[in-house]
Design a binder for these strands. Structure first.
Length: 273
DNA sequence: ATGGCTTACAAAGTAAGA
């Protein structure tokens, strides 16, 4: 079974309907994992997505902030939503891809807290909440059964740029939330807890700069290129070879009224083991 | 000089993003 999966922090789903339609037309997308939908469940534009062919839709939204949605052309079954740090915010949704031989993989869609401005847990409660969230994810991940055989995909805006090449300047971002050593350590501990594979770095060498987010404030985002890799695609070891292609679709950042994040498209072939 | 912008909202200035 082959399919493509896109993760995209959309920064308001209702504001981005045209961009999404344009994207899925240009880049065949079977499963679309959106973050920051900023839309409560009653106002989610279901019909728009059904008309684009995404007839299987699972959402976990709240008014104005956060929110995730997983939209699929292929049958999916909702698994659960989890509240990892007890804030009640809509930041996670998991579904199972139905119809694959032996039960399809679970797909986790995450929006990890951004963490505010100041990288200090005393001065900034949002930073403390972010670290709590990552730690709770690690505890949950470590409990997942069958490290070697488990088939799972974890995508989303993890709001941490772990490698030196995941930011435009390692030195200048060491004290900037998203690239501080404590966040990088928490993300790496999470990754190690279930031997998650960083698919983006399997396909693009760690020596190469790689970003998925560029600030709205730059006059010319491509020229200044002060980006960060905040969005991630992870798989369990059992699916390492199944992730056959990967592309960061940065041209989308130039489209009309873009999100500040760009889509990351992964091709899967579940026969490849 | 990372915040110069962008978003949501019981609508003008706040809060938040990262």
């Amino acid at each position: 079974m082959k399919f493509t999966l896109v993760t995209w922090n959309i920064n308001s789903v209702r504001t981005r309907l045209d961009a999404i339609a344009r994207f899925v037309d240009a880049y065949p997308t079977d499963i679309l994992c959106l973050q920051e939908t900023k839309c409560d469940n009653g106002n989610f534009p279901l019909e728009h997505f059904r008309s684009l062919g995404f007839t299987h839709i699972e959402i976990n939204g709240q008014k104005a902030y956060h929110g995730v949605a997983t939209l699929s052309r292929l049958p999916i079954e909702r698994v659960e939503t989890r509240d990892f740090n007890g804030t009640g915010q809509a930041r996670h949704l998991s579904v199972r891809l139905a119809g694959a031989a032996g039960g399809g993989p679970v797909i986790h869609n995450f929006y990890v807290p951004a963490g505010g401005d100041v990288p200090d847990v005393e001065a900034n409660p949002k930073f403390a909440q972010k670290l709590d969230y990552l730690q709770a994810m690690e505890r949950w991940s470590a409990r997942q059964p069958g490290k070697k055989t488990n088939q799972a995909i974890l995508v989303g805006d993890l709001n941490v740029a772990p490698l030196e090449t995941d930011v435009w300047s390692h030195r200048q971002l060491l004290r900037v939330v998203s690239h501080t050593p404590v966040e990088v350590e928490r993300l790496e501990a999470l990754r190690r807890s279930h031997d998650w594979v960083d698919v983006m770095r399997e396909h693009i060498p760690p020596e190469e700069k790689l970003f998925t987010w560029w600030s709205y404030r730059a006059r010319d985002w491509r020229k200044s290129n002060r980006g960060r890799r905040l969005d991630h695609v992870w798989v369990t070891p059992a699916l390492r070879k199944a992730a056959v292609s990967l592309r960061v679709v940065d041209e989308v950042r130039d489209w009309t009224r873009p999100s500040d994040h760009v889509p990351v498209l992964t091709g899967f072939d579940l026969r490849r083991r």
